[in-house]
């Protein structure tokens, strides 16, 4: 009798499980998985906007789209730029977030209020934050130009950061940082607060200095939080599109063209959907590789 009940329960459980996850599964398959597969398929075809217009189907062209990409002199620099952007912003995000979290965790007055107030940039929609920074970076009237001229004591008077091919990506990085530091800080702070006090006290009694405590005890303890934070940051910055598109559209002179921008441009500006799909496929592969390598690195640290 009992065995029968358990059997029924198990099938019952399975059915219940299926029922519960079915909506999620259907939506994810239809709107995420199928489009991705379709996009990969498209990358192997010659499919341009005019195919849509004339109703002619896509023709299979094997790796031609990819070969063309490799011939594009801008392709490798674009990959380099994307990586540079991701690495730069993620590192800065982590560093500043960690510092901020450490400060907030150390008995400052009004920490709770600060913790709420600091989240404001995160809540701002991306397009609006792009506008805010566009205005600050404006090359004729912008606040940033003014501050640079003040702090350089009048040496640099005409700094339109978004017009400068060497600095435009940095400008966008600053805007991205602005939006992402709050959440990073919040999560790191929570991780910090989870570190048991007794371990720290014991270390202090043993004579360990601040930085020793930090690096030998606190950070290892926070490993999983740090991993989550860094993974989120890597993915978020790798995916970044609206911010860059609104602020510079990939210019000046392609200096802020990341893989996301390149993909959009190929598909919707040059109107070559097959080529755009190829860029995206490579981009996804790169991101998966990066995240996988990152996970491996974190695991190896654990064993150490």
């Amino acid at each position: 009798m009992e065995r029968q009940l358990r059997f029924n329960k198990k099938t019952g459980d399975r059915l219940f499980w299926l029922l519960l996850i079915l909506p999620a599964l259907i939506i994810i398959t239809t709107f995420i998985l199928i489009p991705i597969a379709d996009s990969v398929r498209m990358s192997f075809t010659e499919y341009k906007m005019k195919n849509i217009l004339r109703g002619t189907p896509a023709t299979w062209n094997h790796f031609e789209n990819y070969a063309k990409l490799l011939r594009n002199k801008q392709f490798l620099p674009t990959i380099g730029r994307t990586f540079g952007f991701v690495v730069g912003v993620v590192l800065a995000q982590f560093l500043l977030g960690m510092i901020f979290a450490l400060i907030l965790n150390s008995n400052v007055r009004g920490a709770r209020l600060i913790r709420s107030v600091m989240m404001m940039p995160w809540v701002v929609p991306t397009v609006i934050s792009a506008l805010i920074w566009l205005w600050i970076f404006q090359s004729q009237y912008g606040l940033f130009k003014y501050l640079v001229s003040v702090f350089s004591l009048g040496a640099v008077n005409d700094f339109g950061i978004l017009n400068d091919t060497s600095w435009a990506l940095v400008g966008i990085g600053i805007a991205a940082l602005w939006k992402q530091i709050p959440l990073t800080t919040l999560l790191l702070l929570a991780g910090l607060q989870n570190v048991p006090d007794d371990m720290i006290e014991a270390a202090t009694i043993d004579g360990a200095g601040y930085f020793t405590r930090l690096f030998k005890i606190v950070m290892p303890y926070m490993r999983s939080v740090i991993q989550v934070v860094l993974t989120m940051a890597i993915i978020e910055n790798f995916k970044q599109f609206p911010l860059i598109w609104t602020m510079t559209g990939g210019g000046p002179s392609n200096s802020t063209t990341t893989l996301a921008i390149m993909s959009y441009r190929e598909a919707f500006v040059s109107q070559n959907l097959g080529s755009g799909a190829a860029v995206t496929t490579i981009w996804m592969l790169l991101m998966i590789v990066v995240v996988w390598v990152f996970r491996k690195l974190m695991k190896r640290q654990e064993i150490d």
Binding site: I36, W283, M284
Partner: peptide
Amino acid sequence: MFPVVSRLIS
């Protein structure tokens, strides 16, 4: 991990 841009056309 899949960005919206790649899914747009499909």
